[in-house]
Amino acid sequence: MVQHMSEMIRIENVSKRYADFVALNNVNLTIEAGAKVVICGPSGSGKSTLIRCMNYLAPHDSGTIAIDGVEPKGRRNIEKVRREVGMVFQNFNLFPHLTVLENCILAPVQVRKLPRARAEALARQFLARVHIAEQANKYPSQLSGGQQQRVAIARALCMEPKAMLFDEPTSALDPEMVGEVLDVMVELAGDGITMVCVTHEMAFARKVADSIVFMDKGQIVEVAPPEQFFTAASSARARTFLSQLQY
């Protein structure tokens, strides 16, 4: 097998089932370093399962998943590889007992073993990048949903990952807060980081994605550049899905 140095995430013949239910059925996908990939598809199609497999948060049953050319084996190696891949969740999952700043420095200090001062400087830098520097000493519950999600993005960035995974980062937000989070993500995309995002924000997808991955029933049905996907999707299922999004 030829190793391409520019491959950030390579997924080959990956399947996963929950009991009798096949959540991923022989999925193949290669994500180049620096690529911006948007994953969409109907509810239950396996989008979350796929993105959670990318950082080994959900173990896959068969097939291979390599991150930056490494296919980690064993708990220690998996933990090491996870540092390279940041993740942002639909429900933010901030640590409620820690302040914004503490949320951002916990893993850098414990996992990357950065000195506290260095971790704090890094955290302030990334909090500024998500436009929330002034909230550093507040607790998550004192912030709005949009602010919390931006903190979650900063927290992931503090590990200085090579790739960022987003699982419906705006779908738990009130409509007026979606924009501020997407703005931060658009800025982030401009920095050259590899980005994989499950979202139904099609305007965002058009703006930043190099390719759209459309999933249905645990399979990747179609991979296409945004213009082609939105105007002339080749699969009937994708066209049906897009027509339903209009409402």
Binding site: L57, N93, L94, L106, A107, M159
Partner: peptide, 20 residues
């Protein structure tokens, strides 16, 4: 989700228990 967040940050199971 707390466990997931800690795991995704590369923390060990013990670190997640201890700090989260």
């Amino acid at each position: 989700g707390q466990q997931s967040a800690g795991t995704a940050l590369g923390m060990t199971r013990f670190q997640i228990l201890r700090f989260v």
